[in-house]
């Protein structure tokens, strides 16, 4: 696993996502999910590109169902974007997340 993307669990959500000083991207992923497999290398590549400026986290849906339900996440992969403790921008979900589109969404998080 790349060091640029770190896996968290629901009990770290408040601190690592809402309490983060930098903008955060959070990826809800599942097993037996080809679109998640397809996203992983793109997610890591973009994470490396923004290392130090934006934090890239991922969270395993099956192990963190309650948080997924609370956030209204019902599909994998789903990317959520956070800035100063609030979710911002449009979520990205499903098979068709392009690297270029992800990059633009992340750029929009930066001042």
């Amino acid at each position: 696993m790349s060091a640029a993307v770190e896996e968290i669990s629901a009990n770290q959500y408040d601190e690592r996502v809402l309490g983060a000083e930098t903008p955060v991207v959070l990826d809800f992923f599942s097993t037996e999910c080809p679109p998640c497999e397809a996203l992983a290398p793109k997610y890591e590549a973009v994470a490396e590109q923004f290392a130090g400026k934006v934090r890239f986290l991922k969270i395993f849906r099956q192990g963190n169902r309650e948080l997924a339900t609370r956030l209204g996440v019902s599909g994998s992969p789903t990317l959520l974007f956070f800035k100063s403790g609030r979710e911002v921008g449009a979520r990205m979900t499903g098979e068709d997340i392009k690297r270029s589109a992800l990059k633009s969404a992340v750029e929009a998080l930066l001042p």
Partner: peptide, 17 residues
Amino acid sequence: FKGRGISYCATCDGAYF
């Protein structure tokens, strides 16, 4: 509601339901 209840892939998202 795409990804918030609407899905196009049962294998990917079935377990959410």
